[in-house]
Design a protein around this nucleic acid. Structure first.
Lengths: 132, 132
DNA sequence: TGAACATATGAACATATATTCATATAATAC
DNA sequence: GTATTATATGAATATATGTTCATATGTTCA
């Protein structure tokens, strides 16, 4: 808990911070156990897709079953173009898949984790709201 | 699966979409079961905090134990100011808490869901990487 | 073939976000 | 008190993101 001897040549990489690293052991452990930068980057991209109410609503709706773009547009109350753009993002990330049936394109979830991520996020909100 | 009779006055709200609602039943069910707009908004805000590699790294590091700002700066390899700004966001959302000990401020996770959300997200990345 | 419909997509624009710089606050040592 | 260290924060800037508009693609029907 107390201060480390300071002269230590740790610096752990570059002189990126204007303060001295206070806890060499903790820092090294955190770096050692941290997920790879690439994993963090990709996880960030994933969470970004969940970081919009419209997309969340799309995903929640699809969790109940397949819907076409027009249905989704009605559910969201937003324009077809906006929905298509959002769906394109979700499709690129393989969170949803689509199939065409005549003029209509049906979308469905394409990833088992989607429901779980939704659940955890909404659970958090519910509990926070309850306890605050 | 086929088209509905079209004259139906559903419109489910406003003429927000240029196409006709194709599946009235599905749309109504989706709307009925959807989380409240407010919940979706807040969940979006939550996921936004996980939507940045730097913040993910902060959260992952704190999952291993308490760290001070300077430690985090070293772990991330980014400047103290940037880290403080990120911590302010996480603090506002009550995902982390802090305590002061002299000049040093220690941060720690303040929410049981953080680890779970991190886990689910990273799990998704790992499995996707494995199967793609 | 052409008209109507469902969806997709590029460009433009407005807003949000992350970082940096400069500076403020808080605590300790002298 | 002043100097030093650790952290916080406002302003500015560059980048990212979401929506809209216009238009393109693909399908069905007459």
């Amino acid at each position: 808990m107390a201060d480390e001897p300071q002269g230590a040549k740790l610096d752990t990489e570059a002189p990126r911070c204007d303060c001295r690293v206070v806890h060499k052991d903790r820092v090294e452990r955190a770096i050692a156990r941290a997920p790879l930068p690439e994993e963090l980057r990709e996880a960030g991209e994933l969470f970004k897709l969940f970081a919009d109410p419209g997309r969340l609503r799309i995903l929640a709706a699809l969790a109940e079953g397949e819907l076409c773009v027009c249905d989704l547009s009605a559910v969201l109350g937003s324009g077809q173009s906006a929905v298509s753009h959002q769906l394109a993002l979700l499709r690129t990330a393989r969170l949803v898949k689509n199939r065409r049936e005549g003029k209509t394109v049906y979308y469905a979830l394409d990833d088992e984790h989607v429901k779980e991520i939704l659940r955890v996020g909404l659970e958090h909100i519910a509990e926070r709201t309850a306890s605050s």
